[in-house]
Every structure is written in structure tokens, then in C-alpha cells.
Amino acid sequence: MGSNDAVMFAGVSKSYGAVRAVDGVDLTIPCGQTVALLGPNGAGKSTTINMMLGLFPADRGRVELFGRSPEAASAAGRVGAMLQETKLVPRVTVGELLAFVRGLYPRPLPTDDLLRVANLGGLVGRRLEKLSGGQAQRVKFAVAIAGRPDLLVLDEPTAAMDVESRREFWASMRRYSRDGHTVLFSTHYVEEADESADRVVVIAGGRLVADGSPAEVRRASTAQTVAVALPYDGAAGLERLPGVTAVEVRGDRAYLTTTEPDAVVCALVERGLLRHVEVRGARLEDAYLALTA
């Protein structure tokens, strides 16, 4: 073991033509952590992941997995990944595919464990082209963990899933990470990061803008929400109250984002608008929206 760190990025940048997709990223992930790479579309999540896996070369900086190059880590069977927008190849059964992938790695997961963790019982004999969308995602997850990799990388694994499949998927992921494996997943769903990661790394415009536990990232933003019943004449003018940075109307309530809830409440009282008030601390989603704005 050359290093206790699973992933190390030092000053990594990557451009496509004039567009700087990833800009000077430093990131160290110790073994055993489950990390969410959170960011809006186009933030540089997939580029970061492709460089992490050695699929794209970095323009500048150094990328290491377990103290060596990504290619060497892959060759040693320490990496598994679920890539975005890959399709399963036709004319092979689930069982054949998984047997093939297991055979490539030095210490694969036993087949029974693999089928159980990925929730694939009953699908072993099915051809890959005959799977439903949700089943195909489960098979791709199984391909990623079949070799029992020390580092599991998942690029927006739940992008095309419905709510139920998503919940089952994260349960499978947690079963794998509980066994001491390092997991990095990217997502643009804040609640997935909040529920399934030990650590959240927020990326926007190719730069890391926050890094810490979900609670820490939540605190990184001091924004709070003041919610009141929607005034009879609508939400017009609320955004001009002192201290209000954003107004959102949902149903019959108005949600005011602010860093000075006291001032906002006073202003609402003065205008006679204080009905059914509720003041809440920032949710991770609010912090995320503030950070990536």
C-alpha cells in the first residue's frame, strides 16, 4: 500500500478549447470515506471523474489513486466505476457479463454476494438487451463492484431512475461502502448527498466551492428562510424588504431567503404581513444554491 489516500488531486485543470472545465482542483480522499461530488450540470463533475479514472489526461496538475497513476490503479484491479451514458452491450446474459468482469480482478466478490448486494436475483439468465432501465442500472452497478474494488466511482448513477429505484440503489451503495470501501459519487440531487455521504464536495464552474460533512456544508451558508402566508395581494414587493435575497412562492406560502431573519420579521410586522410565520435554518439545498449561484 503506497498511500492511505484513495484519491489525490493536486492543482488539476482541464480545458476544452477556451472552456475551462476543471480549474485548479485540490482534493484528497482518505480510504474508507463516502464522498458526494455535488454540483449543477456543467460544473465539471464528469470531467473530474474521467480524469480520476485516467480516461482523460489532465492538462495540468497531478492525479493519483492509492499513491500511483489511475492507469496503474486500474491495472491492479483497485478501481470500479459506473460511467455516465454507457449502454450495456447486446447478446450477452447478465450472468455471463458478471462472470467475465469477476474473472478480470484478483479478489472479486463471490457471485452470491454480488447478486444480493446489487439486487439481481432472478435476472442471471436474462440477455442485457432485454433489461428494463432500472434493471440495467443495477447490472451496471454490479459490473462496477464485481471486482471488489477498493475505490468505487459512480458518475450520476441515479440520473434516469424513479424514486423507488433510487432508494433501492442507495441502499445497495451503502451496503458496499459499509464494508470499508471508498466510494465517490456525483449527483445533482442535494438530498442524495445529504443522506448517503460522509462528506460533500461542492463543485461549481470547475472549482471546489465547499468541502465538509453535510452538516458543515449546511453551516457554510448562513442563509435562513422566513416563511409566511402569502399576502392577499400576492408576493409583489416582498423581494424589496430589507435583508431579503430571494423570494419563492409555493402554494399559499411565500419563502424569503435572508441572512438577517430578525430584520425581515420586523419589516413584515410593520407592513401587517406577519401571518403563520416560520423561521428555518438553512437546508443543505439552500446552502448548495447559495454556494453555486
Binding site: G54, S74, G77, V79, L83, T86, K87, V89, L104
Partner: peptide, 18 residues
């Protein structure tokens, strides 16, 4: 070509298969 556009080649690249 079909394997390549399905992303199968990239998937193989991160396995120990050289």
C-alpha cells in the same frame, strides 16, 4: 464501433484488462 459508442471500451479500460 457499436461497442465504442455504447461506452463498453471505456468500461473495459478501467478494469485490469490491458
Amino acid at each position: 464501433v457499436a461497442d465504442r459508442s455504447a461506452g463498453w471500451l471505456r468500461q473495459l479500460r478501467i478494469t485490469p484488462l490491458s
